[in-house]
Simulated assay, not measured.
Amino acid sequence: MPNAADRRFMRLAIALGRRGLGQVWPNPAVGCVIVRDGRILARGWTQPGGRPHAEAMALAACDARGATAYVSLEPCAHHGRTPPCSDALIGAGVIRVVTALTDPDPRVSGRGHARLRAAGLEVHEGVEASAARDANAGFLLRLEAGRPWLTLKLALTLDGRIATAGGESRWITGPEARRAVHALRARHDAVLVGAGTARADDPDLRVRDLGIARQPVRVVASRKMDLDPNGQLGRTARANPVWMLYGDAQDVPEGWTQTGARLIGCPEQDGTLEPRAMMATLAREGLTRVLCEGGGALGAGLIGAGLVDELVIFGAGKLIGADGRAGLGPLGLDRLADAPKFALCRVQPAGDDICQIWRRR
């Protein structure tokens, strides 16, 4: 039976796996720890681009004969670009495998565990399962619900404004909060903005100064694609990916076809892109974690559709007043009881600002 040491080593494996968030899609971010006689022999996690897998990284760094492998997700059992990790563990002489979750990918889905047991290995499942589900929530949502994990980021004044009446928003928050946003981008597969934000801010949306191997995909939801292709996103689309989501009933402007951006049609509803269809489209393209950075109408649409899993709110000690632009567009609520509900997870400082993290109830 799993013991306290098993739980401790599994928590380490899950923490190692988190290092891959934003870097490994469409694969899961998995961690692996190889232990013999209570001593850690090697550690590994899924590498950028999804290969090598965590188990392969750890096994390559040690002699694993007679050892226990702690893996935050069931080892794969299918041949893809690499051989199955379940076979690698068997071949390395591991005698015991402890996992946190069964992989819902239909190519695995229990086959990895079965292969290990058939080879005579001792297998324990479900150790620290809740923490593992949280770490790979996006991968699991994509397979189980057909959509990515969605984080909505807002930078607000004390009175809930994102810009002055004239549209000035640089900068609501200070440099420490802005750096924290770059770290947030690095942990997501894609950064999503609406057409209004793209027009008003001409954003770059890339991660700066963190030395990551794989930049997030920059996604713009623009039903009419009425954006300047010579802006920052259009000019840099060949260097780092840009995906434009547009209404599938609209004509595609010729300027955007020459930028290198990927143009993806989505269904329309009531004069805007249908939120659930947008998220389903991104999931089909392999994305597991999406960070939405605005604007207010897009954020309201995603919240209203019940698609926002996490709110990250950076609050600044400033006041703009009622003539400023609200952080969210209309939600069409008549009763307070119908308001979307989120539970506070933690509050932390970000220089002179604060960061609040809320999860959907």
Rank of each mutant, 00 (worst) to 15 (best):
G306L: 07
G329F: 03
T257R: 15
R218L: 03
C266E: 03
R107K: 14
R65K: 15
V24I: 07
C62W: 04
V94I: 14
A155I: 00
Q348N: 08
A69E: 06
Q348V: 13
R18W: 09
R161K: 15
G306I: 09
A239N: 08
G146S: 11
R208G: 03
I34C: 12
R199M: 05
G315I: 15
P330T: 06
P175W: 05
Y70H: 09
A135N: 02
A339Q: 12
T259I: 10
G321M: 09
R51Y: 15
L328Y: 00
Q47R: 15
R214D: 01
I354K: 05
G231Y: 04
R359L: 12
G31A: 11
G146M: 10
R346M: 08
W256Q: 02
D323M: 11
T236N: 14
R361S: 14
G247S: 09
A239S: 13
D202V: 01
L210K: 12
A56G: 03
W256N: 03
I357F: 06
A119D: 08
T99C: 13
P26A: 05
G167Y: 07
F314V: 01
L298R: 02
R360M: 03
K318V: 10
R179Q: 12
D6N: 12
I320K: 08
G167S: 10
T164R: 14
L140A: 05
G49H: 07
L154P: 00
T281L: 14
V207H: 03
A198L: 01
D134F: 04
H78M: 13
A129S: 14
F342I: 01
R19Y: 04
N240H: 13
G167P: 02
D209R: 15
G196M: 06
T236P: 00
V97Q: 04
L143H: 13
L121D: 02
R7P: 05
R360A: 13
G160L: 10
V220H: 01
L154M: 15
G160K: 04
S169D: 04
P241R: 15
G327P: 00
D228L: 02
V347L: 11
G306P: 10
R199N: 03
E285L: 15
V242E: 06
P26E: 06
G194P: 01
W358F: 13
R111G: 04
D6Y: 11
P241A: 14
R65V: 04
A300I: 03
P216Y: 00
G126L: 09
R199E: 04
D134V: 14
L302K: 09
P148Y: 12
L298H: 02
E125M: 13
A277Y: 01
R142C: 08
M279D: 05
D189L: 02
G167Q: 07
W243D: 05
A15D: 15
A15L: 11
R115Q: 13
R276S: 15
C76N: 15
A129M: 11
G231P: 03
V35M: 07
